[in-house]
Design a protein around this nucleic acid. Structure first.
Lengths: 342, 342
DNA sequence: GAAAATTAGTAGATCGATCTAATCGTTCAC
DNA sequence: GTGAACGATTAGATCGATCTACTAATTTTC
């Protein structure tokens, strides 16, 4: 029984069955209106009868587009990116486009391999959250060999970009902590080799300056954007001679790590120490205590990125486009707003 | 800058530049060893010089395989599936295969659309975590129209399957709770319309029976596999006249919801109420208190599923294959093991 | 009623790589 | 010295859908 191959049903088979030409069948499939109603019905009947399955690959070769785009994400296990991914996928699917997924785990080598694979496919375009710059020249080099490309969440000069006003987000967080009484505020986590890390730290510093607070370098502790990273950094901060009373965290995951660190020392987050996260992932609302965080609207970000790419594919030579979404602060319990308002 | 379109560099261009035929260039690209060393070098030089990019689409059409497989997941934001996805992606990438990702959000309609899209692509095979059965006939119908298919995490009769011994996992959890003193044990969360939900509840019941405990239907509370679901169900359980003292949860996410519910009532998880999760996602170890959970080895599951698919693609007519991984219990603080050992 | 316009359908080339079968020099065996 | 064997290369068909240019039949126009 190991021999009954399924020979694919092609337009030719349909054509033979319906007694028309390949071309006519193709017209029917693409809903071109010049086909007579009777013919159309006959062809549709044959298609159904023979169990025909459209072959995108063949069609892609002939038209010069695949209706597939590559989506390259630096860390899918990060709930923020998971949200972005869903939004992108939905928006593209609505445009009849298939998503080729790739996960780099923050590895430049994997990123390069993925970009190559997707160009080979060939994808009509690429959506990418670039790995940390390190060597920026190399980075843009790998990306720019031309195929429509949109970056999101992290920026690479010269490419379309969908992002969030990170500096403003950090400012909002710092200002809020100031308002509820904090004067020594730390910044925990994040990678200064990514634009998002740089921009958030910059916003943090700017806000401190605007409020007339001293900017103590010891209070800025970058780390991996993980729970572990947030935990370790916060532990270190709390052991300083002159420890901070609150922290802005690079993202929610780091903030959860910070909260654990606080709890592990027998202190209460929001009471003994204020914590603010970044992104407003679903866990932020569900956690106990609820996490005060900067909402960076991941769904909107994904949708925006997808739309930028569709535009770029349509007009490859349009000038570089950038969309910056405005974040807003979502106040819950972890910052201590309720306590300090007395 | 708005210069003319980039006409793709093809084998023909390389052939002309290196003064050989298309066929020879193809041989060089595929590393076929019959090409003379001098010729190979000349061709490689031209390839590099003209910036040639391999066109998988064209190659896929000629050979009859695309080196792409579809991966259909029911909920990417679930960290368990995120882990599985990464493992699958890595294993397939190692085999030179690209992953087409699809997310169904548990919707049967989306699932059907995705399966169709991937068959059209055409993908060489499909990896799928099927949406809840509801109408099983329809389900297998949509999937079986032939293309190599492997299911994982949830089972559909007649298809290859990579899964975990869910019943055993639940038994381990119940037995452990029994050993540390619990006698009224609940089961929280999970969808009885999925094989994983059914099997876990079945294991739970079996363990109760084996231990001579009464099986109270009021203590089995299915719910969405979300934090919210776990939270609500646990709240309801704790308000019973004769409440349970511990709960097996469908997965870690549900367990976190349960823990919140306990805390929100001023009780301490692991002290006043025992909680055990399922899957051992990274958060389980990082949470405070640490979550006791049944480790279902998501990475191994993904790897296994990928391997089953590779085998199935190689031998489409082989008998249906099933791999069941063995789970093990990871004891942390949330079940109260440390307290009760006195 | 003849020319022009419209409608319905088709033949054949084409997208870019791969595969089959063949060609042409050389070298080897006897 | 002749035929077989071998190594390197290639022409041409092919995968399945689409596009261009064309035909044939019918309808409209003056």
């Amino acid at each position: 029984m190991a021999e009954i191959q399924k020979p694919r049903v092609t337009l030719l088979d349909i054509a033979a069955d319906a007694d028309v030409s390949r071309a006519t069948v193709s017209l029917v499939i693409r809903n071109v209106p010049t086909v007579a109603e009777a013919t159309r019905k006959r062809v549709l009947r044959s298609i159904h009868k023979l169990g025909y399955v459209y072959h995108r690959g063949a069609a892609s070769l002939r038209r010069q587009q695949s209706h597939a785009v590559g989506l390259i994400i630096s860390d899918i296990t990060n709930p923020f990116f998971a949200e972005v991914l869903i939004a992108i996928d939905e928006r593209l699917a609505a445009a009849g486009i298939v998503t080729l997924l790739g996960n780099t785990s923050e590895s430049r080598a994997k990123e390069e391999r993925l970009v190559r694979t997707m160009r080979e496919f060939p994808a009509d375009g690429i959506l990418i959250c670039p790995s940390p710059d390190g060597d920026t020249a190399k980075n843009s080099g790998a990306l720019s060999s031309w195929i429509p490309t949109v970056t999101f969440a992290r920026r690479v000069p010269g490419l379309d970009y969908a992002g969030v006003n990170n500096a403003l987000g950090a400012e909002l967080a710092v200002e809020h902590l100031y308002q509820i009484g904090h004067r020594r505020i730390a910044f925990v986590g994040g990678n200064p080799d990514t634009s998002s890390g740089r921009e958030r730290i910059e916003g943090y510093r700017k806000a401190l300056a605007a409020l007339g607070l001293e900017s103590d370098p010891a209070l800025v502790v970058p780390s991996a954007a993980t729970r572990r990273g947030g935990y370790d950094s916060t532990h270190a901060l709390l052991k300083l001679k002159n420890p901070p009373t609150a922290a802005c965290c690079f993202n929610d995951t780091v903030a959860f790590g910070a909260i654990e660190a606080i709890q592990s020392l027998g202190k209460k987050p929001g009471v003994d120490f204020g914590v603010i996260g970044f992104n407003n992932t679903p866990e932020a609302a569900q956690n106990v205590p609820g996490l005060t965080t900067v909402d960076t609207t991941p769904r909107q970000l994904g949708e925006t990125a997808a739309e930028l790419l569709l535009k770029r594919i349509e007009k490859p030579d349009a000038p570089v486009q950038t969309v910056i979404l405005q974040p807003r602060l979502v106040i819950r319990e972890s910052c201590g707003a309720s306590q300090s308002r007395t």
